[in-house]
Amino acid sequence: MRREAGLRYAVMSDVGKRKQNEDAYFAGRMSGHHLFAVADGLGGHASGEVASRMAVEILAETAGRDLPGNDPGEMLIRAFEQINAVIFEYNKDNALNAGTTLSAAVVDESGRCWVGTVGDSRTYIFTPTSSWHTRDQTYVQGLVESGVISPAEAMLHPRKNVLTQALGLSARVQVDLDIVELAGGVLLLSSDGLHDHVPESVIRGIVLDRDPDAACRRLIDSARDAASTDNATVIVARA
């Protein structure tokens, strides 16, 4: 576990039952902010692990250059667009279809969070009285929002992993940007190897009741207990 300027955080990534881990992550401090990110290379697409690694590397480079004196939300949008363009060109040059999801959070000293998301990796904020998370850019999320199925049914839907957006697969990408307050809560970023299998109520109980190290370990164990075979990556941060 690391502590930097009031935030304690920990990270854990597990290969699951896959041959390789296509998740990548970043957790650190730069220019007076914390930056956290989880990227999930698309399984079944060539070089998914390359795409996820490129995503977090370009994000960190962009944040290090552009965060000082600039709006964090605008920085995230620029970073996501650059990531998309670089991976898209990589695919054209190498006749590949590498892609990745990415959810990234910038947290300032006051606890304000700017969160950018493409795909179905998530950022959560849990408090003792509330839960919030980013919107999945998936086919099934559209069904939930239209009232066709419930969130519980979405976890069992056979097309739950069908994305409507991903980085690197087309020339343009739609980035979802949220501005939220940490306000004494707990921040969690995860790839879908966790939240596609473990109910939100269970996730919430784990992160609120444990320090970041213990929470990360228990989250990964819970994904395994729920028969997740996917890579699973979690970042937990709290004041």
Rank of each mutant, 00 (worst) to 15 (best):
L219K: 09
N84W: 02
A98M: 03
Q137F: 06
G48N: 01
L177D: 02
G16A: 00
L169Q: 07
R210H: 11
V148L: 06
H197W: 11
V86C: 10
L143C: 12
A60M: 05
Q20V: 13
L182F: 04
A227P: 02
P72V: 10
G73V: 12
K160W: 00
G48E: 04
E145I: 00
S190F: 07
A171C: 13
D108C: 02
D221N: 07
Q82K: 13
G147F: 08
A5T: 00
S131E: 15
L42Q: 11
V236S: 04
E4T: 08
V140R: 06
V180R: 07
S121Y: 14
L208C: 04
S47T: 00
E4R: 12
M30N: 02
P212R: 01
T134C: 14
S31R: 15
H197E: 01
R18K: 10
L7T: 08
D230F: 11
D14S: 06
A95T: 05
R159V: 12
A55T: 00
V198L: 02
T123Q: 12
L102F: 06
E57K: 12
M75I: 07
N161G: 09
M30W: 03
T129R: 08
D196A: 15
A154L: 03
T101V: 06
P158F: 00
G44N: 13
R78C: 05
Q141L: 08
D176S: 13
I77M: 10
P212W: 02
D108V: 04
S31W: 10
D66Y: 09
V11W: 12
A46S: 11
S130F: 08
A237C: 06
S31N: 14
D14L: 08
L42G: 06
R218Q: 13
H157N: 05
D176T: 12
D230Q: 08
Q141F: 04
R18E: 05
S130E: 13
A166M: 03
V115W: 03
S130K: 08
D66F: 10
E109T: 09
L187T: 14
L169E: 12
A98C: 05
P128L: 03
K17A: 07
P128V: 03
A5G: 00
